[in-house]
Design a protein around this nucleic acid. Structure first.
Length: 159
DNA sequence: GCCAACGTTGGC
DNA sequence: GCCAACGTTGGC
């Protein structure tokens, strides 16, 4: 799951969100709101289950890469930020009766001492088929167990 | 249901 | 800040 750790202003609101921001939330839990892509939405709505681990990826920043791990603690439910005209993620085409967008809740699991950069991930033969490498440009995407295990085995966990 | 125009993502 | 790649929209 990708988030942007550096300041980005959308309708006057800074939408940056890093692994540190997640850790600092109450109980280190946050809603994963603002996803406005059908394929990414379907993954959150239909596939993610409580207890699933996710790789927290920092995108659109100086050092893009995997920053740590989080866990799904609530399965897909309507992304209500789409209903609020004052919210940066408002969408006129979504409403409570027929929600167009969905989100999950995630809880901080661990942070890597150093971000595993996209550049370094690209060097690994084990990750050649990874959606992140092959395709990019999708903010919620599937990770094979072998890819997840490889990434974790190459990460140093902070603390 | 095609596809051109347009908008967004996200690395660099 | 540029721009390639890709997703979405809307006219026909």
């Amino acid at each position: 799951m990708k988030a942007e750790p550096e300041t980005r202003i959308v309708k006057g609101v800074d939408v940056k969100f890093s692994i540190d921001n997640l850790r600092q939330m109450p109980n280190s839990i946050s809603e994963w709101d603002g996803v406005r892509n059908f394929e990414a939405r379907n993954i959150m709505r239909d596939q993610m289950k409580i207890g699933d681990k996710i790789l927290f990826y920092h995108s659109n920043c100086k050092a893009p890469g995997v920053a740590g791990v989080a866990t799904i603690v609530r399965e897909g439910y309507p992304d209500y930020t789409a209903f609020d005209p004052d919210h940066p993620y408002f969408d006129t085409k979504s409403n409570k009766e027929e929600p167009k967008w969905y989100m999950v809740d995630v809880q901080f699991e661990c942070k890597f001492s150093q971000v595993l950069t996209l550049n370094s991930l690209k060097q690994a033969d084990e990750l050649k088929e990874m959606v992140l490498i092959k395709r990019g440009r999708l903010s919620v995407q599937p990770v094979r167990k072998s890819e997840y295990d490889f990434i974790l085995s190459n990460a140093e966990i902070e603390g």
